[in-house]
Write a protein that binds this DNA or RNA. Structure first.
Length: 288
DNA sequence: CACTTGACCTGTCCGC
DNA sequence: TGCGGACAGGTCAAGT
């Protein structure tokens, strides 16, 4: 599911909902979803309060007063949903995509002292949640290897171009999906950005001019900002911290629009496979 | 080293 | 309505 804009939307929601909350209980379905030992949980999670909610790449970081951090990767179908005490057991209000929680996809449940809850749901079980000392978070393999945040103003084409060019022999789509090149781009925003920059997703990196790569970085930043503004994309499972959908998909130009008209030139959008992923593009305005 | 493919899981959709 | 296969927003290990 979630790419940078979705995780950022969840982060913003949780920041409003759980900062200052005290955690009083934790349960998990399997050790794969939450591998920490019970004694670590008792010592560094239970009784602590949430001090901050951060994001790095597609990883969500919930800092605790114990100087530990709950590190969560939602992978394809993960959700972090908060339910206030007044709704507990009653399902979600309004336009939520979520029914009564916990449900069969619930992997981890945190209970706060006011009897509100945070649920980590994950249909496909690819995601995980781990308790780590806050200082140790940057030391995990993923954090050591992951590239720069695309929305940092200091991240410009000066840095982007040499990083993409390390993947000279592969497709540009594979290059920008590579989290060590830059952080946070996934399948939806890769397709959307490449359309914006008029680059065919299968173009080989070494064949692309620097100017094209400059355009691409501009598009990545623009698309990510718009997607955050729209609360992310709900293609299937994604919901924010309140269980609600994101609406970027209504503004998508190519993603999941195969058979429809390109909004720029009117040509029928095609779907193919690039870098092992379903890939949407306009065969006329996105040239190799 | 650079690059590609399959594996991890469950659910849904599509064609027969 | 049932059944098999393909596919789904991410990452990693293992293969070439």
């Amino acid at each position: 599911m979630p790419e940078l804009p979705e995780v950022e939307t969840v982060r913003r929601g949780l920041q409003k909902l759980i900062i200052g909350n005290q955690i009083v209980a934790e349960t998990h379905a399997t050790d794969k979803s939450f591998p920490n030992e019970a004694n670590e949980v008792a010592e560094f999670l239970l009784g602590t309060t949430v001090t901050n909610v951060r994001r790095r790449a597609k990883v969500l970081l919930i800092d605790l007063s114990s100087k530990y951090t709950l590190v969560t990767h939602l992978k394809m179908t993960g959700q972090l949903v908060y339910l206030g005490a007044e709704r507990f057991g009653a399902g979600h209000p309004n336009d939520s995509l979520i029914g009564v929680l916990p449900d069969k996809s619930t992997r981890v449940t945190l209970t706060f002292s006011d009897n509100s809850h945070l649920y980590f749901n994950d249909q496909r079980k690819f995601g995980w949640m781990r308790l780590l000392p806050t200082f140790a978070v940057p030391e995990i393999d993923f954090m050591k290897r992951v590239g720069p945040e695309p929305l940092e103003e200091v991240f410009t084409s000066r840095e982007f171009i040499p990083r993409v060019r390390r993947r000279a022999g592969t497709s540009i789509k594979a290059a920008i999906l590579d989290q060590t090149v830059l952080a946070g781009v996934g399948n939806i925003y890769a397709d959307e950005s490449l359309w914006g920059a008029k680059i065919h997703p299968a173009s080989i990196v070494r064949e692309l001019s620097d100017k094209k790569l400059v355009d691409l970085l501009t598009e990545i930043k623009t698309v990510m900002l718009l997607a955050i503004e729209k609360g992310g994309s709900t293609d299937r499972n994604y919901v924010n911290a309140e269980g609600k959908r994101g609406s970027y998909i209504d503004f998508a130009r190519v993603f999941r629009r195969e058979g429809l008209d390109c909004p720029r030139c009117g040509t029928t959008i095609e779907k193919t496979r690039v870098a092992g992923r379903g890939t949407h593009f306009c065969p006329v305005c996105q040239v190799q």
